[in-house]
Write a protein that binds this DNA or RNA. Structure first.
Lengths: 240, 240
DNA sequence: TTCAAGGTTTAAGGTAGTCTAAAAATCTCC
DNA sequence: GGAGATTTTTAGACTACCTTAAACCTTGAA
């Protein structure tokens, strides 16, 4: 039940990669954790011994139910901490990841639950990602990305699936936080950029970035983006 | 400048022991960290290589200025975190130590400074211990302990030098938090217990514990214990 | 003044994690 | 259905810790 912080990092990485492809290749894990494939192979053995993953040599790994549960608990920690950092301490949304990355291994369950209480039992982190429950469950949601939206259809940003601080900072400068109201005005052909209205202001956005912005289309009869649980824009709280 | 968390633990332990005797014996460190003396000797070599301690074989170690600075920064982290846990998250004062012990190695300087700001740049932790500044300085203060007080002289509790959760819980049940107003009524001879008035209520306290309670005698002309910077009693915030 | 007790250091071995380099398996493509 | 490229695993070595057991100082008391 209690793992080293390195083991926690592996589980988290594997969980994330598993959302993309199952089973997960050794080299994917190595890339994500910035380690050699040899190190990953060695660790996978240990994880398999602890019944956290199942490993088919040369084929890849998948998390066991125990492994997945552990992963989700760590992800909960991470996301609660991120939200605490922005909401309570005024961190910018592009600077919370690394800090949370270290704290998540040191924080007790009790600390996390107290933080969650302080934050009002939040459902999403500052990037709009769903926070797993303390029991380790998350809803699988299937949201459209910005480029999937029909032209001129109003929607609200729900989640910004971007890690890189640079990109986050840039998106923040465009006001593209969870909760922002958006409308696609035009999509340039051949994978070109999108013209988007963000909270009423006209913006142009590279398609690559737009793909990472998940939205909830406004339902016809609602006045304006009120269907979204994410209500306020993080990352602009008290500047350092 | 950046050390492993094990190194940080050693520095903190040595700093604390150095307040009692200098140089610090290998076996004292081993006791405090619950390791074998052999492990300590090995680590001392590494610390000496990094110029964090000076070591005279068979005689003991003392921190170098660099080592002391590092130690004080870690102690600052620890104490700021402890205060955050009681003040903001409602932890009891007997349960903050272990949590802070883990977090102190993961928290960035920035996090600690933001917490300190949130807490109003506090001077003392929940036990009344002085928090070193961000620059790594602490005042050396020389306060009398409860048994040093003349009978019937009013004083205020400043610091409770107790680690053990059991004892802290017990002292808390007697209202002996920093800020409490106390008066020694009687001292039993031959190292016997003290009769003490705490916030007006009569208590009896083992001498061993009383020795660890540091107080500031009320100055004659003040109405009541207002000279103390520690103003409110921690540890009684929202019960779990 | 020696010598035993007790604390300290060395020596040897273990775990968790990393790396490089080489061997083995799988995939790709003609 | 191979040859060659690619990916994965093994092998051997390194760091930072820890342990136990033996060797080594220091000291204090007869």
């Amino acid at each position: 039940m209690k793992h080293t912080s390195v083991v926690e990092d592996y589980l988290k990485a594997i969980w994330g990669l598993q959302q993309i492809e199952r089973p997960v290749a050794t080299s994917r894990i190595a890339e994500r954790l910035d380690l050699t494939a040899a190190a990953v192979t060695a660790m996978i053995k240990r994880l398999a011994d602890q019944k956290l993953v199942r490993h088919e040599p040369y084929r890849g790994v998948i998390l066991t139910p125990a492994g997945e549960l552990s992963a989700l608990r760590i992800i909960r920690r991470h996301r609660v901490l991120e939200l605490f950092l922005t909401e309570t301490l005024g961190y910018e949304w592009d600077r919370v990841h690394d800090e949370a990355e270290r704290l998540e291994h040191a924080a007790s369950d009790e600390l996390i639950e107290r933080l969650a209480r302080l934050l009002g039992e939040p459902e999403r982190d500052p990037h709009g990602s769903l926070i797993p429950t303390a029991e380790g469950t998350v809803d699988r949601e299937k949201l459209p990305a910005l480029p999937d939206l029909p032209v001129d259809a109003p929607a609200a940003v729900v989640e910004v699936r971007v890690q890189s601080p640079d990109r986050l900072r840039y998106l923040g400068s465009l006001d593209l936080f969870p909760g922002a109201e958006v409308m696609v005005r035009e999509q340039a052909p051949f994978g070109g950029p999108l013209s988007v209205e963000v909270n009423g202001a006209a913006r142009v956005l590279a398609r690559e970035l737009a793909e990472q912005i998940l939205v909830r289309p406004a339902s016809r009869d609602e006045p304006s983006g009120d269907a979204s649980p994410a209500e306020d824009a993080p990352g602009k709280a008290g500047a350092a």
